[in-house]
Amino acid sequence: MAYRFVRAQPLRQRLPELRERIESGEIEQMEPFGQAMMKALQNARFDPETGEAVWIEEDYCTPPLAMERAEVLDEYFEGISIVDENVDEADGWERIENLPGLWDQILDTA
């Protein structure tokens, strides 16, 4: 499986809408990437040093996250970058586990 370590600047004013789309199940139902994207975004972290959202996402697109960006991510994030195109999923999440949750940080200040 291919996992990507992702960093992106959240568009804070848009994230409540994204959260609603996640909670309603809309994101999860998107084929073929919905379940992986939902898991990644639900568990996304916030890097207070850079103000970026960070997450690990299962992805098989070339270029990375092509479908996800076109359908969802570009509406809610800018400056999306793939820090590591082939990260071990567990190791990737471990690298960011001490960061605060994205939703706890962003929704409180949106």
Rank of each mutant, 00 (worst) to 15 (best):
S24D: 09
V54Y: 03
E89T: 00
L99Q: 10
L107T: 07
E75K: 15
A70K: 14
F46M: 11
Q29T: 08
I82L: 05
L41P: 09
G79N: 15
L18S: 06
E68G: 13
E71R: 12
A53G: 08
D108Y: 03
G101Q: 08
K39C: 00
F77W: 04
V54E: 08
R14G: 01
E26M: 08
M38C: 09
I22D: 05
D104G: 04
W55A: 01
Q105H: 10
T62G: 11
A53T: 15
D88P: 01
E26I: 06
Y76R: 05
T62Q: 12
Y60E: 10
E75I: 01
R45H: 13
M67H: 10
G25Q: 03
M38A: 14
D108Q: 13
A40N: 00
I80T: 14
I56E: 00
V83E: 08
L18R: 10
E57M: 07
Q13V: 08
Q105D: 09
T109S: 13
C61G: 08
L11Q: 15
M1T: 03
P64G: 04
E71T: 11
A66M: 09
R14L: 06
E68D: 04
P100I: 09
V87M: 05
D84Q: 12
E89H: 01
L41S: 06
Q9S: 15
E75C: 07
A70M: 14
G25W: 03
E97W: 03
G34T: 08
G34N: 10
C61Q: 14
M67R: 14
L11A: 06
L11I: 15
E52Y: 14
E97Y: 02
G79K: 09
V54L: 11
E75T: 11
V83D: 05
L41D: 04
F5I: 00
A90T: 10
A8G: 12
P48Y: 06
A53I: 10
I106G: 07
D59G: 03
R45P: 02
D91Q: 09
P63D: 09
E31D: 06
E94Q: 13
A44F: 04
L107Q: 08
E23F: 04
E49T: 10
M67G: 02
S81T: 15
E71G: 00
G51F: 13
D104V: 09
E75D: 15
